[in-house]
Amino acid sequence: MSAEWPLWEVFVRSKAGLDHKHCGSLHAADPQMAIQLARDVYTRRQEGTSVWVVRSDQIVASDPGDKAAFFDPMADKVYRHPTFYELPKSLDHM
């Protein structure tokens, strides 16, 4: 059996002005094929105006096992949110 085609992650921008959003993955032999297949598989109904593909093995991700410790430092910094500050009513919409 020959080697499997590598796996790619697909990101689609649904319309100008919005972010590219991850929408799935697919197997393709090379970048050109990955872009073409991404169009066929993920944008059959004009869901996109731009598509990115990235080799899955090139993505570095945070470890879900460390989720609690890794994101915890942000949990007690309530002063980073505007709602932390109590201001006079007359300033309500600041």
Binding site: S2, A3, W5, A29
Partner: peptide, 11 residues
């Protein structure tokens, strides 16, 4: 099978 192999060889 030959298509899958050829695509990999081309890449």
């Amino acid at each position: 099978e030959w298509v899958r192999e050829a695509a990999m060889a081309h890449a």
